[in-house]
Design a binder for these strands. Structure first.
Lengths: 242, 242
DNA sequence: CGAAGTTGTCTATGATAATAGACAACTTCA
DNA sequence: TGAAGTTGTCTATTATCATAGACAACTTCG
């Protein structure tokens, strides 16, 4: 097939090939680490020139989805999501910047009371009412992390329902009039996934996780929410900027 | 803006302009009969050459969305076919109500056996003989949708030939003594047209389709046929009544 | 080692995309 | 009538898209 065969669609051929391969990766036909078919074979299935296939693969490689090994083949990258940790950290922006679609999903929302630790982080008294939101975040269809978020039940009444609707912490805060916020200190540790999180993250038992604790503040420095997140270590790599 | 300014996306500039104008028509910024901004003005808003705008407008004109009048302007021509989804849904009536002439055409008819899913929909056993009818429906000469329809080969023997002659599902059923029928649950999703359907619907590659799965029942609730239809999203607008 | 298969790179050609400028043909409106 | 604004058409140039062939560099495996 060449562009002039079909009524010109305004979409480059290599883009169609790249989209096809990417869908194959997204829906699991090609798993992480798998070897893709050879360039010649791909060219035949899409009925395009090998160079067109190379263009498509180059685009995917630039986004880090695949990696070519000379003489051997092209492999699906153990697609670790590059996750820069800055003061202005937004999951949706990070995932979107990688050309993938961010999704958030509420697992559970409940009322809670502040432990001494939580109270200190959030600048309130121990025993104060909190909203606890358990959520999962995905890039395309790949689970990236599960987070437990605590917010003041007084400042953010009904926060669980709002998050369920907006599926985004940023939008949740905007709903209460918070237009911007900053991340405070972020603590990173590692651990082994427990059974609950393993199921949520579609991870095998015994695999490592990155554990991140962080508190977000408004521009005046007032604490807004504190988070306890568990990332699938095999899918993420944090970038700490110096 | 030129293609080399942005990281090359594999989508032609004129296509971006055309999509932008089409969205303006779809969401009502430009109503049917309205005059579009002049080519120069469009070129400035999108920061492209006037010739690029003309390419975009030509693509829209070929699809019948706009009509250029020399010396005067370019006008919005058509509107989408309003397609209400009710229990009594007849393609011919919907199209006829819009003052257009409905047409149906057989693409292919073949014998098939019921998968478990089809068997459940049609209330039969898996492996039961089916007739599969691939058909296209048009309003005047514009393709609206392609449908794959499955019917019991025992209840509707030779259904393919009957449809080829009558070109209407309603008439086909009447031929077997079914005087009236109702639509059951309808499932609507969206997707991207594949190469086969693109050719049948006269759609460019990469354009969206509405995917509708539905099963029709007789007045006693017995399943008659189940359909898998793909509508050209740019030509149809579903109306779900509350 | 040697053969087969893979990715990387080079040259070359034709079609398409996008830009630029100029002018004709036509409509609208004062 | 005439000026302003619109679409239609022409030539020209540059960059990108897609194809084609050939060969190098490398990996894998018998």
């Amino acid at each position: 097939m060449s562009m002039q065969d079909t009524a010109s669609s305004g979409v480059a051929l290599w883009r169609l090939v790249a989209d096809g391969i990417e869908r194959g990766i997204a829906d699991g036909r090609f798993a992480a680490g798998d070897k893709l078919p050879g360039e010649m074979e791909i060219a035949e299935t899409y009925r395009v020139n090998r160079h067109t296939v190379r263009r498509a693969l180059a685009a995917l490689a630039e986004r880090g989805l695949v990696r070519a090994e000379r003489g051997s083949g092209t492999y699906v990258e153990a697609q670790k999501l590059a996750y820069p940790l800055r003061s202005r950290t937004r999951f949706s922006e990070i995932v979107g910047a990688g050309g993938r679609e961010p999704r958030g999903q509420l697992i559970e929302a409940s009322e809670d009371v502040a432990t001494r630790e939580l109270a200190r982080e959030l600048g309130m008294k121990a025993g104060a009412p909190l909203v606890r939101i358990e959520a999962i975040r995905l890039a395309d269809r790949t689970p990236i992390c599960v987070s437990t978020t605590w917010l003041s039940a007084e400042l953010f009444p009904n926060a669980g329902a709002v998050f369920a609707a907006t599926r985004s912490m940023t939008k949740l805060l905007a709903h209460y009039g918070v237009r911007d916020y900053r991340r405070g200190a972020t603590r990173i540790t590692a651990g082994i996934v427990d059974a609950t999180d393993a199921a949520r993250l579609d991870l095998a038992l015994g695999r490592p996780i990155l554990v991140v604790d962080a508190t977000d503040h408004d521009l005046q420095g007032k604490p807004l929410m504190t988070k306890h997140s568990r990332f699938a270590a095999e899918r993420v790599e944090f970038l700490v900027e110096s």
